[in-house]
Amino acid sequence: MTLLFVLALVVTAIAAVMVVAAKNLVRAVMALALMLLGTAVLYALLEAPFLAGVQVLTYVGGVVTLMIFGVMVTRRHEGANAPAERIHGFRGLVVAAGMFALLAWAVVASDLERGATPIVKPETTRSLATALLDDHLVAFEVVSLLLLAALIGAVVLARRRDGRDEGSAILAAASREAIDAQQAPAGSAHGGDAR
């Protein structure tokens, strides 16, 4: 258990560094996939199986695919007149390192382990669903609106002036992901209208 945890932790961290370090964007996306998988494993270890599943399905299955698609479509061009890969490298490093130092100090200084009681009743998928559709029904409905808005927005942006729908592939993928993520029937219903 602990070994698996350490492994997932290390893999996630390294993959994350690769995401921002890789020059090649395809590699960066792959590293992102790896990192997301590592996080999914951590979710599983943290007794969040539902989230682990969703993570794999939507993120690794969907977002990464979308990203790859994005990279492929826009890729033609890097090379010849590709601009310098990085800007403000040092400044970025200082900001990020400073932020991490602050966070790490706060985490350590907060002495989280003292007085922490193990959870008696882990959150189950069932309780999650109850909370989603009872306590937070308003937010749930708002999310369906949000996804609908995103859908319309993506259509608007991707549609060409002359009417050719070059971006419809992205849209299709995006809408599927959106709907999967929420499993909200409302989302698909509205989505139908929007078309």
Partner: peptide, 30 residues
């Protein structure tokens, strides 16, 4: 939490330094 903080800060670094829009999106994902 240390790991989460690390991931977050790596993302911030990417956000601040990458120029490729897709790379910035990846950093946001982080």
């Amino acid at each position: 939490l240390l790991l989460a903080s690390f991931l977050f800060c790596v993302g911030v670094y990417g956000l601040l330094t990458r120029r490729q829009a897709v790379a910035v999106l990846l950093a946001l994902e982080l």
